[in-house]
Design a protein around this nucleic acid. Structure first.
Lengths: 117, 117
DNA sequence: TCCATAATTCCTAGATACTGGAAATATCGA
DNA sequence: TCGATATTTCCAGTATCTAGGAATTATGGA
């Protein structure tokens, strides 16, 4: 990932409404959620949500596929991975214990809590 | 971490100049880098850099300590960890292989490359 | 074809962020 | 104390972002 894409992704996430949408989709997994359902759950106007979904899509963080009258959005984990990689690149100045504990937290603290141990 | 802090941190990073600074400090480790040296390396005016360092500091992503006439800034890895945790919270809708590979990437792909295996 | 539902696009006033010149503050050495 | 260096604060013009009403497009059912 180059810096332009990283800034685009971070800008997309740097907004309360969009961050809420993204986290909802991250938690939803590959199944995704319809735009209308997202609007209902977060209680935001459809047009405002649509604009924000567009911003997240352009950043590559989510993707939508049409399903009948609905559009189902889901998180693009690859982009998220690339972004985190970019932030961590060549990190910690020769003290690997710093980011080891970071990755550990990511792995055990959260994902494990919902899925496997 | 609550959403307000997350948005503040993401907003701080969602800027080419600040992201460059942050990554430089992440790579520098606990030793840190003086403000003037950062300005020199990135070729930005001191006042512009100072404003951006303030924004990163307020977001809790970096911290500066005075050392003589200089101020040494360094990354606050705890905040970064908390932010990544927040993004990953309850992720992947019961498909733990998604974020397992993500954490794996963070751990092996980058940190290991610079520090230990 | 016609209607209802789902989502997006258009538009614009108001708010917020960005940059860098100039001035101010902090520290060190003489 | 005085001058040089390091950093921050003040300020203001410009640019960008935001929200949501109204209109538009897409799809499915009758």
């Amino acid at each position: 990932m180059e810096i332009y894409s990283a800034v685009t992704a971070l800008s997309a996430l740097a907004h309360q409404g969009r961050l809420s949408v993204f986290r909802m989709l991250v938690q939803a997994g590959h199944e995704g959620i319809a735009a209308g359902e997202i609007a209902r759950r977060l209680d935001v106007p459809a047009n405002t949500l649509s604009a924000n979904l567009t911003i997240l899509s352009h950043a590559g963080l989510i993707a939508g596929v049409r399903d009948g009258r609905s559009v189902i959005y889901s998180a693009r984990y690859e982009t998220m991975t690339a972004l985190l990689e970019y932030l961590m690149e060549d990190c910690c100045g020769g003290s690997p214990e710093i980011c080891a504990s970071l990755a550990d937290t990511v792995l055990r603290g959260r994902c494990g809590a919902t899925g496997a141990a």
